[in-house]
């Protein structure tokens, strides 16, 4: 038995300037599916806890309900890798048996982690194929570009493709 919220997923949402922690109702759809749903520009969040990005441990405001604008989100960090994947890719799916280490940048952050793909890594295809706005980076580490001592790690990091400045194939260690 685990101590966690049932039916709600705790996640850290990052915009250029803020870290917003809260809970997303994932009883019907996975977080990745909610983010990539083209019919809504917003994601509803329960219990939003807001921290400025230069002081990410300090909670400056709390709100019981809020809506986040998907297009302004740069990265989202969740603790379990499965929570970053679309539902069709979880629960024993054979999709994506190849893990490719990547490095990418979005405004304010650098992200290192793994892309799970069904083939070899083609950097161009990752950015152009499909209609999904957010891609899942597994075992991700998000580093604040201006404060390299501040990092966020998670089993999964969802990255907004529109905000990616550079996507690089990283050398395996």
């Amino acid at each position: 038995m685990e101590v966690q919220e049932s039916g709600y997923l705790a996640a850290d949402f990052f915009t250029h300037s803020y870290r917003i922690s809260g809970h997303v109702d994932v009883r019907r759809r996975a977080l990745a599916d909610i983010l990539n749903d083209q019919t809504s520009n917003f994601i509803p969040l329960e219990d939003a806890y807001i921290s400025p990005i230069d002081r990410p441990g300090e909670i400056i405001a709390t709100y019981s309900a809020s809506n986040l604008v998907k297009s302004n989100l740069t990265v989202i960090v969740v603790s379990q890798s499965n929570d970053a994947l679309p539902r069709k890719h979880t629960y024993g799916s054979y999709y994506g048996t190849f893990l490719h280490k990547i490095f990418l940048t979005v405004p304010g952050f650098e992200v290192v982690g793994y892309l799970r793909l069904s083939s070899n890594l083609d950097l161009r295809r990752v950015l152009t194929t499909g209609t999904d706005e957010f891609i899942a980076v597994l075992d991700g580490r998000v580093r604040n570009s201006l404060r390299p001592d501040v990092t966020f790690t998670g089993g999964g990091v969802l990255v907004n493709k529109r905000h990616i400045g550079a996507l690089c194939m990283a050398e395996e260690e």
Partner: peptide, 24 residues
């Protein structure tokens, strides 16, 4: 559920003896 290193530090700075992140 805020399970980052900065959160651990914030908890210790606030006077906590121990910090555990969910799920536990």
């Amino acid at each position: 559920a805020r399970g980052q290193e900065v959160d651990r530090q914030a908890a210790l700075d606030a006077g906590a003896d121990l910090y555990l992140s969910k799920p536990v």
